[in-house]
Design a protein around this nucleic acid. Sequence first.
DNA 1: CTTGACACAGAACAGGCGTTCGAGTATTAT
DNA 2: ATAATACTCGAACGCCTGTTCTGTGTCAAG
Lengths: 226, 226
Amino acid sequence: MMMMVRKSKGLGERHQKILDFIASYQREHKHPPSIREIGEHCDISSTSVVNYYLDQLEKNGHIERDRKISRGVRLTAPTPLGDMFRVPMMGVIQAGEPIPVPTNADFGSFTPEDSVEVAMSLMPAKEKGKELFALKVQGESMIDAMVNDGDIVILKPTQDARNGDMVAVWLSDRNETTLKFFFKEKDKYRLQPANPTMKPIYIDKNEALEIKGKVVMVIRKVERYN
Amino acid sequence: MMMMVRKSKGLGERHQKILDFIASYQREHKHPPSIREIGEHCDISSTSVVNYYLDQLEKNGHIERDRKISRGVRLTAPTPLGDMFRVPMMGVIQAGEPIPVPTNADFGSFTPEDSVEVAMSLMPAKEKGKELFALKVQGESMIDAMVNDGDIVILKPTQDARNGDMVAVWLSDRNETTLKFFFKEKDKYRLQPANPTMKPIYIDKNEALEIKGKVVMVIRKVERYN
DNA sequence: CTTGACACAGAACAGGCGTTCGAGTATTAT
DNA sequence: ATAATACTCGAACGCCTGTTCTGTGTCAAG
């Protein structure tokens, strides 16, 4: 009475191929493929065979089907994609320049080109729905914050920070922009680099220290190194 | 010679109604409506009239159409969110442990809980649609790659790297996992830290060096510092 | 009033598409 | 071997769907 194990218990190679194709087709065309299109791209010569596999995939819960209507297949698993968040890209942040912070008018009207999309599921819960903005790091002056040239930092505009917040500050006395962890001590501020091997810098309380925003996320797209 | 202003210059009421219907239909059915379905729900009795408005909406850039194929309408502007990408979270990467790489079976069947969503618009174009996986960085051993404890790195599995790629390698001789920029030189490999202030390490070509994957993105969620 | 652009309806056509049926082949259990 | 099951193919049927053509009524400019 042993079970047959011709194909691995789960999805066969062809099931997987069909699933992948539906996903990639949907991404590219914004609408599902037809049965014949699935067949062509998965080396299946008969529509009935595609239908045969689609039935199985539906039974296993991998897809849903609107029978009788064209292109009525949809993936079930990739549906639970969470919402996304669009934050305006305000410009660049670099050592010698002040930090560009958005005005209230900047929110609400910004082009998709000048913005960054972030998945909700990656957002710290507290920051959802807030007014965030993004800056592109220019130069290698933020390396003591584990941030490199070309990285994207996402900030929440704020003037005051709590101990432990990673903040973007403008030190007008030093004419310097920097990203650091913020700590308020007896009579001075301690700006702690994110890299534990580097030493903190101390700012006297009567020195000018403008907190421009709190960092909530850092994104680095690693491309070619040239 | 004044122009007629029968309808407000922009979208008429009917255009808007069609646009809204396409959006709601797409949300509910996960695929676009047919011309006749649009007609029914917008009180248009003729398919040609729907086609008439669709042509206008396309000319104005509000929708795109895949002519000749069923349900080939899609919204352009009202798609405020681009697509997202779901990559499986395979585990943690830390200095003393080998890098967990996924098998082919791991793709396709992973729960939403053990995965990371990334916006397509943040992906380097080359990597779209590829098999990517994510690892959570544990410990502070990757700081020479500008990666910190708790960061999420997204990798593309590969055995060979080109010069300049940022790779995850397992140095079995040193019993060490690390992230570095990869360069092949005359008789050795140069592993260059991302932080320009740090010096590269050199690996002789007969030493064991297993490239496990190429880093395509780093994500850091900055929460509280405690 | 005539003209013409515009909005709309209805019908017909051709191809797209899901479905079904009959038949054939391969693999496995008995 | 034999039967059962899994898998594949090709063709045909018929609805679905986008396209196109003809015709009608409205409204404003000339």
